[in-house]
């Protein structure tokens, strides 16, 4: 408990220093936030989003605007699916070597120098990809890939490779070693042991993590789309800079529809994966 308590106090000090720094170094904007001018601006912005004073009909009441932006929403959904599949494809062959008990032979295999090398390499890759946010990966990747759905999906996949990979490796480290050892004592080779005991035990966890991450990914597709120019994100930025605020409102509605749909779908799929329900 002592380390946790010290950390708590340490965090409080850090919080005070951080707030002090931000409020001192950058004027903070507290005066702006309480000024009536700011609030009347914010009021105007909301009125423009709803389109109450606009001479034309707001975009979200036009069927053809819904259809046009619906295509973008579909693109965004495709980006998220592509991202999650790319993540899965990349994690699947690597997460076993990222688990300490596989590489050091705790599960019955012999420790090998190659296994240790793989372990450190994979762990390093997990840390490096996970630590950098999706948007930063996207900013880098647009230098290489043509704008559209693909660079966004790749950026999302790179970050989530680290997230899902690490979680999956940790699952393997916490697995019950019994079945693997039983197979080993029945004369199974290393590969057979991995395929018939570790892998099936870890698979449901792996799929559950992927589905959880899908919920995070669908929220982030729009953000990544800001720079990778795919789906709703690009249009979101354009509508904002051209002051097409009712279009912006329509895009936010699509965004929310996607988020809710994916949350429900992921919950349903997770129940199927774990066999409950």
């Amino acid at each position: 408990m002592t380390f946790a308590r010290a950390s708590l106090y340490g965090f409080v000090v850090l919080a005070l220093v951080s707030w002090g720094y931000i409020l001192a170094a950058t004027d903070g904007g507290a005066a702006d936030l309480v000024s009536p001018k700011t609030w009347s601006n914010a009021g105007n912005f909301s009125r423009q989003l709803i389109g109450v004073d606009s001479p034309t009909r707001p975009a979200y009441l036009e069927v053809d605007r819904w259809l046009v932006t619906g295509r973008l929403a579909l693109d965004t959904l495709a980006m998220s699916v592509l991202a999650i599949v790319l993540t899965g494809v990349a994690v699947l062959p690597t997460f076993l070597s990222g688990a300490r008990n596989v590489s050091n032979g705790d599960l019955g295999g012999a420790p090998s120098r190659l296994g240790t090398l793989f372990y450190h390499g994979v762990r390093l890759a997990f840390t490096l990809t996970r630590a950098v946010p999706e948007l930063v990966w996207a900013m880098v990747i647009v230098f290489f890939l043509s704008p559209g759905i693909l660079p966004g999906a790749v950026a999302l996949a790179v970050h989530n490779y680290g997230v899902v990979g690490r979680l999956s490796a940790e699952v393997v480290e916490n697995l019950d070693p019994g079945p693997a050892k039983a197979l080993r004592s029945a004369g199974a080779s290393n590969l057979q042991m991995l395929i018939y005991s570790i892998f099936p035990q870890a698979l449901p966890h792996f799929l559950t993590y992927l589905l959880y991450r899908w919920e995070v990914i669908i929220r982030t597709t729009v953000v990544v789309g800001f720079v990778s120019a795919g789906g709703l994100g690009r249009e979101f930025r354009l509508s904002l800079s051209y002051f097409h605020y009712t279009d912006l409102a329509l895009l936010i509605m699509w965004y929310l529809i996607l988020v809710i749909a994916v949350d429900l779908l992921s919950a349903w799929l997770r129940r199927l994966v774990t066999g409950k329900g």
Partner: peptide, 21 residues
């Protein structure tokens, strides 16, 4: 349900850019 950067973009449009926003 809304990503923090999407909130930020909307808030900056509504309240202007400041650390607190």
């Amino acid at each position: 349900s809304i990503h923090e950067l999407v909130w930020a973009v909307l808030f900056v449009a509504a309240f202007g850019l400041s650390s607190l926003t």
